[in-house]
Write a protein that binds this DNA or RNA. Structure first.
Length: 380
RNA sequence: GCCUACAUAGCUCAGUCGGUAGAGCAUGCGGCUGUUAACCGCAGUGUCAUAGGUUCGAGUCCUAUUGUGGGCG
């Protein structure tokens, strides 16, 4: 048994499920905390992650390949041992870097050639290389190597891109099966999720969803969203596409998003999320609360004795005022960023727990409406 | 006391051949969606030390004064 995925409760399209993996249980809907290079930016340790209720840590294939090298991590015993994290890890495949490093790469059928963003040296990554790197990292869940195309790409480009991503998925699957059969492989039960693409073209999305649904992947992601389209377009794509992905498998909306995005996507059947917002925004002094997002750099907090959010149990709110955290941020002290990141991740993890409870109780719609209304007025 | 350099935004400083001033930092605000991001963007602020002079026109040239630094006594 590589894993099991059992739906515990449903509320319309929203579902609470329990996924058992070789690295333990994941209760979904879940927010995976993004630690691209095997670390949550902002001086957050894996001890911290345990304290704030993190279920899954997410790292990146391209970035760990560039620094410090997946072979080294394999030789150390895998990413779990390397970063002292024994719970599930999901590794992204490098497909997003095809988008985010668009100026530094060339796409061909075989794969993508990057100019390293560190020193410019050539790095070739195709489906096989991405699987080999992720196998070396020995993550719980590997992601298929895809092309994350810009949301506003034209139709012809998207058709060609998605066709190639489909061919790449076949190659990923073959290579992963080979790697999982090798004695030298650390995690021979590594899971592989396929990724749906198609920009904002409903028919391309649906055709692709049907196509990859036949490939019996361990889970299915919707990629290529939150990359330039509107929220309405994103929700529309989910409504059109998710029904064509196998409902007995995990569904993962990649890279999304704001608390409101997550609340809406859960209502459309999504189980897994990840986003840099809580970490990046935290480092930039933006913190999430049930009454919206605050910018702690703002002058209005300079004498504010309140915690970021009254009643919050995170390490920042338990001990420090907005005024002190603002001071730390203004002074460039790492502690300021760290406290904001811890708060934000705690906020996200706690919201996911509330979401699961609401689904269990069958009042998800009411919970969502209440949560959204509270955050109204401040931008998400 | 003499010689010399300097004085321009909150701070540190640019400022061409004379044509009424700019950068960095700081400040205020905004942005960030599978992290090239402790990042990026926008905005505000000036008796150009003071007083005269030359000139159509002076931050810029001349004189004096004040202040500050350095050197010599």
């Amino acid at each position: 048994m590589k894993y099991s995925y059992k739906i515990v409760a449903r509320d319309r399209l929203a579902r609470h499920a329990r996924m058992e993996t070789v690295h333990g249980v994941i209760e979904t809907p879940v927010f995976m905390n993004v630690g691209t290079v095997g670390a949550i930016k902002g001086a957050v340790s894996t001890d911290d992650l345990r304290e704030i209720g993190t279920q899954v840590e997410l790292s990146n294939t391209y970035h760990l390949h560039v620094r410090t090298g997946d072979q080294l991590i394999h030789d150390f015993g895998g990413l779990h041992r390397f970063m002292n994290w024994d719970r599930p890890i999901l590794t992204d495949s490098g497909g997003f870097q095809v988008f985010s490093l668009a100026g530094l790469r060339k796409i061909k059928e075989e794969g993508v050639t990057f100019a390293s963003h560190i020193d410019g040296h050539r790095i070739f990554m195709g489906p096989e290389e991405s699987m080999q790197i992720q196998s070396n990292l020995a993550s719980t869940i590997a992601m298929a190597f895809d092309e994350c195309a810009p949301a506003l790409a034209d139709r012809e480009y998207v058709i060609n891109s998605v066709a190639r991503t489909t061919r790449w998925l076949e190659r990923c699957r073959t290579e992963m099966a080979r790697l999982n059969s090798l004695d030298s492989t650390i995690n021979r039960e590594q899971l592989l999720f396929g990724i749906n693409q198609g920009a904002i073209f409903d028919d391309i999305r649906i055709d692709h969803a049907k196509r990859i649904a036949e490939m019996d992947m361990d889970g299915y992601a919707v990629g290529g969203l939150a990359v330039g389209e509107s929220h309405e377009q994103m929700y529309h794509v989910l409504e059109e596409t998710v029904p064509y992905l196998p409902s007995d498998r995990p569904t993962y909306l990649m890279g999304v998003g704001t608390p409101a995005n997550i609340l809406e996507a859960v209502d459309r059947g999504v189980d897994f999320f990840d986003c840099v917002y809580p970490t990046r925004n935290g480092r930039h002094g933006n913190v999430y609360t049930n009454r919206g997002k605050l910018n702690l750099f703002n002058k209005k907090y300079e004498l504010d004795p309140e915690p970021i959010e009254e009643g919050c149990g995170c390490p920042a709110c338990r001990s420090y005022s907005r005024a002190y955290i603002r001071h730390l941020l203004k002074a460039g002290e790492m502690l300021g960023m760290r406290l904001c990141v811890l708060h934000n991740l705690y906020f996200y993890n706690t919201m996911m727990s509330e979401i699961r409870d609401a689904i269990d109780k069958g009042n998800y719609a009411a919970y969502k409406a209440h949560k959204l209304a509270g955050m109204e007025g401040e931008k998400q």
